[in-house]
């Protein structure tokens, strides 16, 4: 079976202000693959996800990122999202005054429009969100509240998962998706994530701990330290890391 590359990152260097954070990062993710990037705190894991999504404040100094063969770095944040990139955030942003349903409807219709699909009317939309929300343990009351305002850590992650479910991205980045989750919430979120694994969609799981990878089992595991991948392997590498820690990969300062 020939594999089609979805995301191709080559020799990427990126900095925030004057500080170089990503120093020669290479990674290719093919359709249907789930990759985990694990690394110690401060390795620049979040910078990686932000650079892929196009968050302002990061400067790519050299290297390239291609998505479905297109130069990703030339696209705006929203274009990347519409092309199918979804960032499940470590710290979802609160938006007071904007009901979650309103926010979701704008997002879903923006993406549908891009895919030349008809926009959903309110009835169709509410029905879809209710059904998908139910599977994630999100009740109708929660999505009437302003986006993430007053949500617990678990509720925020459920909402991130709901967004991922309704936007149907072909590539999802889970950035420390398990932080702040108790074991029950972790199961629910993982089930939501796994439901999207259909052999076509790809994922990049960025995590500090191995815990999440028990539920979202990766095809590949990479150790990320000091701005680049220092070791790659299969899911067993994650277990190894859990046991030995990152010490051997972190340079003595």
């Amino acid at each position: 079976m020939s594999k089609t590359p979805l995301l191709e990152i080559e020799n990427l260097h990126a900095k925030v202000g004057d500080k170089e954070i990503i120093k020669g990062f290479n990674l290719t993710i093919n359709e249907g693959e789930v990759h985990a990037v694990m690394g110690p705190n401060g390795a620049g894991k979040s910078t990686l996800s932000n650079v892929i999504c196009g968050k302002p404040g990061y400067e790519i100094t050299s290297g390239s990122i291609r998505f479905k063969g297109k130069d990703l770095t030339k696209m705006s944040v929203e274009e990347r999202a519409r092309e199918g990139i979804f960032l499940c955030m470590q710290y979802p942003v609160e938006i007071p005054g904007v009901p979650t349903t309103t926010f979701l409807k704008h997002a879903v219709n923006a993406v549908r429009k891009h895919r030349n699909q008809p926009e959903l009317d309110t009835m169709e939309f509410v029905k879809m969100v209710r059904e998908e929300g139910k599977k994630l343990g999100i009740d109708a009351d929660m999505i009437k509240r302003p986006v993430n305002v007053g949500f617990s850590g678990g509720e925020k992650k459920r909402l991130e998962t709901l967004q991922m479910t309704v936007l149907k991205p072909c590539f999802s980045i889970l950035d420390e998706a398990d932080s702040g989750l108790d074991i029950d919430a972790l199961k629910v979120v993982s089930e939501g994530v796994n439901a999207l694994r259909d052999g076509q969609r790809s994922m990049l799981v960025i995590t500090h701990y191995q815990r999440l990878l028990n539920y979202v089992v990766p095809d590949f595991v990479h150790v990320y330290a000091d701005g680049r991948i220092v070791k790659s392997g299969d899911k067993n590498l994650a277990l190894e890391l859990e046991e030995k820690g990152y010490a051997e990969f972190v340079k003595e300062k």
């Binding site: 999504c53 968050k55 302002p56 705006s76 944040v77 929203e78 990347r80 999202a81 519409r82 979804f86 960032l87 955030m89 979802p92 942003v93 938006i95 005054g97 904007v98 309103t102 926010f103 704008h106 997002a107 923006a110 993406v111 891009h114 967004q163 936007l167």
Partner: peptide, 17 residues
């Protein structure tokens, strides 16, 4: 940024806010 990362255009996101 949060809204844009969900596909909502920047101008539309501003109007929502």
């Amino acid at each position: 940024f949060y809204m844009q990362s969900r596909g909502i255009g920047r101008e539309e996101a501003k109007q929502i806010l």
